[in-house]
Design a protein around this nucleic acid. Structure first.
Lengths: 372, 372
DNA sequence: GTGAAAGCGCTAACAT
DNA sequence: ATGTTAGCGCTTTCAC
């Protein structure tokens, strides 16, 4: 942490400034005071001013005061731009998420912001919206801005992020790894233990007596068969429950698509006694469709989902959910990205545990006959 | 939009570089190629390279190609740091919200990101967490980073943001205005028409026959009596319904506080036939407390709230809500902040309309006797 | 059409 | 303890 005079007060253009101001910022208006202005006004060299503000080197208490006073007077704030050029560090971290509006992403962002703050870094945020082109543009921008580290929740192959490790900029994937396996071990990742989460839900459901469990997946576009889907099959198989192919429905990550998939699944397989939704969007869809179809939850249909969003508890009945530590994911990823923990080579992804939050939406499996 | 070679590819340190590299970025590793490297490698002057990348001036097709090739070779990305120092524009916008995790803020952020993208700006995001000190630090950081514009969802007095307009940096408040009226007309604001929103809800409720309507407020800490609370009283009065003081409950903007307030209100006034929650937190609390108290919604108690969050529709019954155009708020605020529309003087805040989304949580007022 | 040179605001040697 | 100086990577006159 650096020491600034008058935390919270902001700079402004100087009052008495002698030297010329050729190129104004285009949209006329005041111009920020520079280190030179302060030096002149305080009657010292610019190096001294720099020392005062950067905390480096020794300055006599008297001079320091004079400088501080002058700075206050001129509303001086050291320019990060100038400093960054010299020090080759911007103090900024790039954060790219699919959608800042999504509760999972929002929590993750919260974690990053938290951590960045303790580290004295700021955060450039942008949303990929699941569009590879947009993701590439964002990576580009981060590069251009010379961020000190990057945290990405990748949508696609992860290719756009390739340049960072090469250039010595720490790159950390969070929440998911790029589909392309170029990345295996190349960049560190902080992930929720999705497979374990799915497993816990499946075990819970099967333990309740369910044998016909549906899966509502919503992989990002272009992603190969989701980890969760695989985990779902594996968990079922491990428990000796045969996996039928049409128990699995896939959707794009939008409300409409999820709804369509849920409706399709539940109508196609009216013998289902439980559904596991792979995210809050399909979870929401399952609830809505069940309501539409007049299925009582959990009497007729048990519902569980991944992501313990706020409404899970407000639903009636409250929804059983696999909670992913989104905030921690962000926090840890930020630590790694800022500290450059990357250097320690391909140490494999950091896996954070999930937790099954049992509420009222799952019950014992009803008789094996079709529902309606 | 500038033209760059190979959108999406990123820069890297050059292969054949002659000149010295004294100060490496501390954490060893590759260093990005500079304009000089490209110039040397392409056998041209740096000005030419600059022209190629900034689109300024004329460059012959042949030279342009050579430059582009060299740049590609060296994984060159122009440095925004160098450019910003020269041009005095960083291309960055500062965005401060109380909490990135809150659905309203998240939507607002989404809007800002959207708009910023179309404007070719990037966004520095930070969360104030309702803490004035933190808010001041963030303002400080934005100033230091020399953002081109600021969008703030203020928590307190708005004092920390004072420096920006003074320094000629466009400042736009979004969602709410600072409590201190220093700001009246000083900085533009983009607001939802909260008063109208509350009014529409109150009119709806009273129209349903409700006469004992409670209000669950959750003003930010340190904020004077909320606009919404005032609007609530006014609306009731306008309809000829007497306003009793203890119909209004206030809470801090946390789950727990909201819950406590809701429980207090509903227990204290068991004759209430309807509640209007001033936000999704108190709304959530109302739903939970009603459930806890075994009140049927809407038979025993009608519930409406401000902010049409995702779960409003998933609730049983689905919740009637006043929807605020959070995303548009962000979008518009960003436009103003980036375009510097500020210059047009104190034109008063931009007011965006709210919408009453009627769902199933409000019904005709039950008999006037106390509930239980 | 292209190059040389002068800074933008700052830090870091190096002098004093 | 403090001043001088040389750049950091870029844009921008100003010559040619």
């Amino acid at each position: 942490m650096e020491t600034f005079p008058e935390k919270g007060r902001s700079w402004q253009h100087g009052a008495s400034r002698a030297h010329r101001r050729p190129a104004r910022p285009e949209r006329g208006g005041a111009v920020a005071a520079t280190i030179k202005d302060v030096a002149a006004s305080a009657g010292v060299g610019i190096a001294t001013v720099s020392r005062v503000f950067s905390g480096t080197g020794a300055v006599s208490a008297a001079t320091r005061e004079r400088v501080l006073a002058a700075a206050r007077d001129l509303h001086y704030r050291p320019s990060a731009v100038g400093r960054s050029l010299k020090t080759r560090r911007t103090g900024g971290l790039g954060l790219a998420v699919p959608d800042a509006t999504d509760p999972f992403c929002a929590d993750l962002i919260g974690g990053v912001l938290d951590c960045a703050r303790t580290l004295g870094q700021h955060v450039l945020l942008d949303a990929t919206l699941g569009d590879p082109a947009r993701e590439a543009e964002i990576a580009d921008r981060f590069a251009e801005q010379r961020v000190d580290g990057v945290i990405a929740v990748p949508s696609g192959t992860g290719d756009p992020w390739e340049g960072f490790p090469r250039a010595g900029v720490p790159l950390v994937f969070a929440g998911r790894v790029p589909s392309c396996r170029t990345w295996t071990g190349r960049a560190p990742a902080v992930l929720a233990d999705d497979a374990a989460g799915i497993r816990s839900a499946v075990e819970y459901l099967v333990g309740l007596g369910h044998r016909r469990v549906g899966f509502l997946g919503a992989p990002a576009p272009g992603t190969p068969p989701d980890v969760r889907e695989d985990a779902f099959r594996a968990a079922l198989t491990a428990l000796g429950v045969p996996v039928e192919e049409d128990l699995v429905a896939r959707a794009r990550p939008t409300r409409d698509s999820a709804y369509a998939a849920a409706a399709g699944l539940l109508q196609r397989r009216s013998d289902l006694t439980a559904v596991l939704a792979s995210g809050h969007l399909p979870g929401e869809a399952a609830v809505l469709v069940a309501r539409e179809l007049d299925l009582r939850v959990p009497a007729d249909l048990s519902i569980a989902m991944v992501d313990d969003v706020a409404w899970a508890e407000l639903c009636d009945p409250p929804l059983t959910a696999v909670s992913r530590p989104a905030r921690d994911l962000g926090y840890r990823a930020c630590e790694l990205a800022a500290r450059g923990g990357v250097r320690r080579g391909p140490s494999g992804p950091v896996l954070l545990p999930t937790e099954l939050v049992v509420r009222g939406s799952c019950g014992p499996a009803p008789s094996r006959r079709a529902r309606h």
